[in-house]
Amino acid sequence: MSDIRNELKYLPSHEWARVEEDGTVTIGITDHAQESLGDVVYVETPELGATVNAGEEAGVVESVKAASDIYSPISGEVIAVNESLEDAPEQVNESPYDDGWFYKVKPSDLSELEDALDAAGYQAAIEADE
């Protein structure tokens, strides 16, 4: 049973987004995603300062098994990337919602997240997949 957190928003493609107190948004992949991928060996995040668009590719996560595109749940400017993943990509497996975050965005329109799934919606999406 994978961990799905109530305070997060989700894409059916298994990314999560968390709105921080300062209005920025942190993005990563879900516990279910890391479990299906297996041991993560590389993460390619967007570049600092780059613009990402909601629903579009923003990076790649590679596990021993497969490569998987990362889609951004929200548009905006990338204001931080998790550089520690370069040396310790296993954080994505060990702590997908905390230490294993991918990048942070200054959102151009926070209301875009209204289209994303809530925890119950994401749970239903996973079950429909299986």
Binding site: G38, D39, V41, V64, K65, N93
Partner: peptide, 8 residues
């Protein structure tokens, strides 16, 4: 079994 936790 594909793995029992960590393949690596």
């Amino acid at each position: 079994p594909i793995n029992y936790g960590s393949q690596i």
